[in-house]
Nucleic acid binder design. Structure first.
Lengths: 136, 136
DNA sequence: GCCTTATTGAGAACGAATTTTCATTATCAT
DNA sequence: ATGATAATGAAAATTCGTTCTCAATAAGGC
């Protein structure tokens, strides 16, 4: 990936505007508002390229395919956690970290990373308590 | 699943002795020590049957296929968290829960479940500091 | 021990996510 | 503006985990 194409800008733009981790399909849908002819393969190609270049990070979720979001500042060691809505399936970044990990770590084990995923209803789905919807 | 077969006993035995969540492949390997001819399809069939019957529970992990472990007592509402070793890939159950989830939950969001996964070196891999297998 | 039929083993088949192929299009150094 | 070639779109292909098919085997009620 050496050239700045319309499709790549659209993918990056979709991720920037979302302010939350997106799935490849979500990126496709959002970016197609800018480049209607955009294909899923191109979304994947750009995701892969930007991951390598460090501009994107993958957000792994239990039992779910990875989501992606624009990488934070390199020096921001503030790792993140996420909330996944059981209704609309969207994923939102959380602020902060529960800590207290030492307390539940067995002796001799060395913790290098940790991932916390909350699940429930996002504010929108909790409010209009309609039946299940899908991401917007 | 109405008959108690040698293979089903082997699968259950493997899970009981492991005392940690196992992947279908891990179950296969362990159970084959008892029933060498055991096939992977049978492992999956028994996992599925025992899941339905409530004897097993699936352990979802970020970016990983589900592991399985024998279900705790029905009344034990003590949900669990896990530690995954970046070196040997094994998963270990943890005691307790960090709590403090409200603090990081955005206003209006309703938390119904949560999952925490620690990653690093298990006591064995931390001790014999062999080369890394998975990057961080 | 006999017989019905649930269960097995092996491989084919599957579904979902992701990658590749390849002919066409478009970026950008010149 | 031109050309070399990186990037694209569409579909085919691949991967991985899991389920299914089907002939052969074996559990367990009799």
């Amino acid at each position: 990936m050496e050239r700045m194409t319309r499709q790549r800008e659209a993918v990056l733009g979709a991720l920037r505007e979302a302010a939350r981790p997106l799935s490849p399909a979500e990126i496709l849908a959002a970016a197609q508002r800018t480049v209607p002819t955009l294909g899923l393969a191109t979304v994947y190609r750009n995701i892969r390229a930007m991951l390598q270049e460090g501009g994107l990070v993958a957000v792994p979720l239990p039992g779910q395919a990875d989501r992606y979001e624009v990488a934070d500042e390199p020096d921001a060691v503030v790792h993140k956690h996420y909330f996944q809505c059981l209704s609309c399936d969207r994923v939102f970044p959380l602020e902060g970290c529960p800590g207290h990990l030492e307390e539940i770590t067995p002796p001799g084990f060395v913790v290098e990373q940790h991932e916390l995923t909350l699940r429930g209803r996002c504010i929108e789905c909790a409010t209009k308590k309609a039946g299940k919807r899908r991401a917007s």
